[in-house]
Design a binder for these strands. Structure first.
Length: 225
DNA sequence: CATAGGATTTGCT
DNA sequence: GCAAATCCTATGC
């Protein structure tokens, strides 16, 4: 928004650590439309982030941090801008971005991606020839399979190009990409959380995007960007 | 289209 | 022991 119109902007600008050093519920909607990039050594693949969920510290009864620091959740308590990768249901991986300051737990779960770069390798990793492009990374575990993300990337620094990183694409400013609309709703699969944490609208998505993991409830409110 | 069940690590009770 | 920040397949309307 602040860029001079005449300035030749690089294609992708890595997100600085300060971007992540904020509350999860602020970072989560801000990540929508950003680019997630993966270099597996054979080439780069990635896509636009279209769905996220915010998780807070021990006070958040839906967060892995609710039990305090364990070996699994250690990176959630560390410095921001790193990857928190964990295994769900014993077989799927989920990718988070660590938020908040060092020593304070917080993370944003990346739930869905619109694949835009390296479609061929993404498709071959998913191993489903008939799946539409839009659906290849439409879900937190699908996203990890699509980009070959597993626990070897737990703790990876996401603020500079490497194995895995985040960037702001110039087209994010376009109305057509960001659509000017963000929907929110309750987080998925956290019905067990008490004290109103299950109902909190900390799931965010780009309205109407075809790569969402599932529809948002009609009660999800639309925010201005 | 809806629902049900399995795979199987992690961490609590 | 059990439920989980999931996905895929099978079955039944």
């Amino acid at each position: 928004v602040l860029e001079p119109a005449a300035a030749p902007s690089p294609a992708f600008v890595s997100l600085p650590r300060a971007f992540f050093a904020r509350p999860s519920w602020v970072v989560a909607p801000d990540l929508l439309g950003m680019l997630l990039l993966r270099d597996d050594g054979e080439g780069v693949s990635g896509g636009l982030i279209v769905e996220t969920e915010a998780y807070d510290g021990p006070e958040d009864r839906a967060s892995h941090a609710r039990a305090g620091r364990t070996r699994r959740t250690a990176v959630m308590f560390g410095p921001p801008g790193h990857a928190y990768v964990y295994l769900v249901y014993g077989l799927h991986h989920c990718l988070n971005v660590v938020t908040e300051t060092d020593g304070e737990a917080g993370a944003v779960l990346l739930r869905a991606l619109e694949p835009t770069i390296g479609l061929e390798s993404i498709r071959s990793r998913r191993g489903r020839p008939d799946e539409p492009d839009d659906r290849l990374a439409a879900g937190p575990a699908r996203l990890c399979e699509a980009l070959a993300v597993d626990r070897r990337l737990d703790g990876a620094d996401l603020t500079a190009p490497g194995r895995l990183w985040l960037a702001s694409p110039p087209q994010r400013l376009d109305e057509s990409t960001r659509a000017g609309r963000i929907v929110s709703g309750p987080r998925v699969g956290v019905g067990y959380a008490g004290d109103g944490w299950a109902e909190r609208a900390w799931r965010f998505g780009l309205a109407g995007n075809h790569s969402l993991s599932r529809p948002f409830p009609l009660t999800g409110r639309v925010e201005a960007t």
